[in-house]
């Protein structure tokens, strides 16, 4: 009975973490689904968003969730800058050129972050830090629960936006058949700009929520890179819906591994899932239709 109770508690913790992973990975999935480039510098944008929220949190002593109101629009424009300065100029170059450029961006941004904020451990402070509440016998960490709630809200807004707005439909149309969308009068370049903006905004939310839960330092994004890639591959490249389910699975798997095998084994599990997926189900969880939003 006790062991079952512990298992259920671990599931709760895993799902709470998975919700945040979903926000972190959905932006990467969105870009691949629409623009068809592998934005490997996505995780450095996540940590950049985290540091922006940290600064807003420190200088204005704002609640981390409220500081997102400043971080999100700033990161939206940074996403647009990434598209305009890195992706658009390499539009006709071989795909490896974009990968190298993204890699350069990772190094440049990581070191810039180190220069501005130092490479020490930091944390985003909140009044509910370290607090928790009990619900039917289970412990809910307050920062994790609030982060999960915010993650759900953001994902829900993203899905509604993609389903029910003119721009959202145009984004999906470009993802499913770029040439036809263009013939119907969709300005594909404008859609790419919007998608990069949204993706960086999602990265900012994901990073800020992680910063609320865990302490962080500039090169931490490398381990997040592993997580977001595992999520996106398991969910099926370019499938936002699949990424959400995959994020929950990987969140739960990490927490279970950390408890039952050992704390250091959490990240290993994400990579193990990545490799198993690539070998046995490269199209991702949701089947072969793939690469469409």
């Amino acid at each position: 009975m006790k062991s079952f109770f512990i298992f259920a508690q671990l599931l709760i913790n895993g799902v709470l973490l998975g919700g945040v992973y979903a926000v972190m990975a959905s932006g990467l999935s969105l870009i691949f689904g629409v623009v068809r480039v592998l934005q490997i510098s996505h995780s450095v944008l996540i940590i950049l968003g985290c540091y922006f929220s940290y600064s807003v949190n420190r200088t204005l002593s704002l609640d981390p969730i409220l500081s997102l109101l400043i971080t999100m629009p700033v990161m939206f424009f940074i996403g647009i800058a990434v598209y305009r300065l890195v992706v658009a100029p390499l539009k006709d170059a071989p795909p490896v050129a974009a990968l190298l450029a993204f890699f350069g961006l990772i190094l440049a941004l990581e070191n810039t972050i180190g220069l501005i904020w130092t490479t020490n451990y930091n944390a985003i402070h909140s009044v509910y830090q370290g607090k928790s509440f009990l619900l039917s016998g289970f412990v809910f960490s307050l920062p994790k629960t609030i982060a999960f709630g915010m993650a759900c809200l953001v994902i829900f807004t993203l899905l509604i936006f993609l389903r029910n707005t003119e721009t959202g439909r145009a984004i999906r149309a470009v993802s499913q058949d770029r040439d036809t969308a263009q013939i119907l009068g969709v300005d594909v370049d404008r859609i790419f700009v919007i998608v990069f903006g949204i993706s960086a905004t999602l990265a900012a939310v994901g990073g800020s929520l992680m910063g609320m839960i865990y302490s962080f330092y500039p090169s931490l994004h490398w381990s997040w890179l592993g997580v977001v890639f595992s999520v996106v591959i398991l969910g099926g490249l370019g499938q936002v819906g699949g990424a959400i389910i995959a994020a929950l699975i990987i969140g739960v798997a990490e927490i279970l591994a950390a408890y039952y095998i050992g704390a250091a084994w959490g990240p290993f599990v994400a990579f193990a899932i990545l490799i198993i997926t690539l070998v046995h189900r490269p199209q991702g969880l949701l089947g072969t239709k793939g690469q469409r939003i």
Binding site: E166, R169, A170, R172, A173, Q176, D177, D179, T180, A181, I183, L184, G185, V186, K289, R292, I293
Partner: peptide
Amino acid sequence: SYVPQGRTIFPEMTVWENLRMGGFI
């Protein structure tokens, strides 16, 4: 208006959404 060769519908969108995209401009 131009209907290109081969299937150029948006497969993951509903019939209504496909028609709606026709009036995008």
